[in-house]
Amino acid sequence: MTHHGAIILMMLCLMLSAPLLTHAETHSGSAPETPAKTALSDADFNEGVRAVREKDYRKAYLIFQQHAESMQPDAQYNLALLLKSGKGSPQNFKQALVWSWLAQLGEVEPAVELAQDLLDMLEEKSVKDARGQVLERLEDGIAKKDRSAVMKIARYYQQVEGEPDMGQAYTWYAVAAALDIEGAAEARDEAFDDVDEADIVNLQEEATTLFDAFVKQ
């Protein structure tokens, strides 16, 4: 089974056993959604989905948690689903938001809607804390020289930060482009259009400093 089909199956299993929470006080089901490309092995992914189908939600939770901690976007999305619906672990909307945002930054498309649903359930203090946790994980990835974290942190400043910080988004896209990461140059050039001309030189110098630190052995 492909990851594409497995996520759909997982969502169907969750909905059939207990509808997903869609706002703070009521529960309702939603149509299956399709994520972007996945990184888990088929064996691991299908084991987690099989656990959901068999209603062994704790096992599924632990499987997806392990891979989510390793920054696998598809596992982060599934972990967010479990935390939102309270399967395998008590409902935790703030942590579900953290994982759904990380999945979104990893280009799992349905994570965008999931994150928006969760934002509607939380007060600003919790949202701010969730943002901080996301940024902390991304900065940890940068410190560990994780190339995938470079594009994610650029997207963070563009998509997740309370007010989009296009200067920081441009800076990190510039770093990613220098690393020849796919799609980075195009994203950098698009971000450039939203940056104040007076800030460009400083941002480019910052990007050079960040790049040098990243590639330093």
Rank of each mutant, 00 (worst) to 15 (best):
H67R: 06
G167W: 03
K59H: 09
G183R: 10
L79R: 02
E206G: 01
P164D: 02
M1Y: 10
D120H: 12
S148V: 13
E206H: 08
V127Q: 12
V215P: 00
L203H: 05
A103C: 03
V134R: 07
G88N: 06
D74C: 07
P35H: 08
D129I: 08
K144Y: 15
D194P: 01
F214R: 04
Q72H: 10
T209I: 12
A149D: 13
A174S: 15
E190P: 01
P35E: 05
I200M: 08
E33T: 11
H27Q: 13
M10G: 15
Q159P: 09
E124K: 14
T209L: 05
A103F: 03
L21G: 05
A187M: 12
D199V: 01
V134S: 10
Q158E: 15
Q72R: 07
Q204W: 04
D165Y: 04
T38K: 03
H67S: 03
T208A: 07
E113C: 03
D129T: 13
G162W: 04
E190N: 08
K125A: 15
Q65K: 02
Y77A: 08
D44T: 13
A149R: 14
G106Y: 11
V195D: 03
T26Q: 01
K144C: 11
Y156W: 11
H4I: 10
A177K: 07
G141T: 14
F211S: 03
V112Y: 14
L97P: 00
A213D: 13
S41I: 02
I7C: 07
Q217T: 02
E25Y: 02
E139T: 15
L97I: 00
L40S: 14
L119N: 14
Y57E: 06
Q76A: 09
A80P: 02
V215S: 03
G86Q: 00
L118E: 09
I200E: 06
E69A: 11
D165E: 03
